[in-house]
Nucleic acid binder design. Structure first.
Lengths: 126, 126
DNA sequence: CCTTCTTGCCTTGCTGAGCAAGGTACCATA
DNA sequence: TATGGTACCTTGCTCAGCAAGGCAAGAAGG
C-alpha cells in the first residue's frame, strides 16, 4: 500500500496549499462568475482568479481549458477569436443566456453550502 | 455523446439539490468537526449532519463508511464497539491526537477557501 | 545566434472522491 | 407476513482536477 502523500498542509505559507478535493466544484462557479462581468480569454481568467483571491487560487491550465470546452459544449459559453494589440490570437468566452441562468444557480448552491458548513463548523470549534 | 443529466437544480425545493462536485471535500471536514465534539457512531453522524444543516446535507452511507475506514487507516480516528440500550452493536469513532490536528488544518482550509470565494463571488454578483 | 521567458492555446492519462446499488442482520410494528 | 427502521458493510462506475506534456510566436539577454 503506497501511502497517501501529496499534501500535508501543516505549514502556513503566504498562500495556503489546499487539498485538491476542496477545489472541486469551485472552479465552475469561479469561471461563470468572472464571465458574468465581462468576456474574457482563458489566460486572463487564470490571472484574474489569482489576482482577486490574493493568490489563494492558482487554477491550473489543465483544469481551466477542459472546463471551458465542456461548458461551451453544454451551451453555457460561446467563444470568439479576436486579435490583441500584440497580434496574438485570443479566444474570448462569454456567457449565453442559458449560461447566465446556470451561473446564478451555481452561485446560489455555493452560498447555501457555505452557510450550512458554517452552521456545523461554527458549532464544532466554538 | 450521451448528455450530462443527473442534476438540473433549477427548482428550489425545501432542501436544495447540490451538484455532487460541490460536496467533494466537505464530507471530510464534516466528519472531523462532528467527532471533535464527541465520539459518534456512523449512523449517528449521518443524522447529526442532516439535523444540524437543516436537512441540507444528506450524506450517503456509501460515502460515509468508506471515508471513516480511510481516516482510521490514516490514523486520524480510532474505533471501539459498544452495545447500545437496545442490544444493538455500534462502532464509535473518536479522534486521535493526529486527527485533532488534522481536523484543525482542514477547518482552516475550508474557511480560507470560503473567504476567497466570497471575495470573488461578491464582486461578481454585485 | 541561441536560449530562456512569457504569452496563449491545447491534450492525454492518472488519481481519487462521491455514490448508486447492492448486501447482512435484528427488531418492532402493522 | 411484510414493511420499515436501525446499524454495519461492499463493489463498480463516473467524473473533476491536474501533472506533464506539446505547439507557436514574440521579447529579452547573454
Amino acid at each position: 500500500m503506497p501511502a497517501k502523500v501529496v499534501n500535508d498542509c501543516h505549514s502556513t505559507p503566504e498562500h495556503m496549499e489546499y487539498d485538491r478535493e476542496f477545489l472541486t466544484g469551485t472552479v465552475g462557479v469561479l469561471i461563470l462568475s468572472l464571465l458574468c462581468e465581462r468576456a474574457m480569454y482563458g489566460y486572463e481568467i487564470l490571472q484574474e482568479a489569482e489576482r482577486r483571491s490574493a493568490s489563494q487560487f492558482l487554477m491550473k491550465e489543465g483544469t481551466l481549458y477542459p472546463a471551458l470546452h465542456q461548458m461551451e459544449r453544454a451551451g453555457f459559453l460561446k467563444a470568439a477569436w479576436h486579435e490583441s494589440d500584440n497580434g496574438r490570437a485570443r479566444k474570448y468566452y462569454s456567457l449565453t443566456a442559458k449560461g447566465r441562468r446556470h451561473a446564478e444557480s451555481k452561485r446560489r448552491q455555493w452560498e447555501s453550502i457555505s452557510a450550512a458548513m458554517r452552521a456545523i463548523l461554527g458549532a464544532a470549534h466554538g
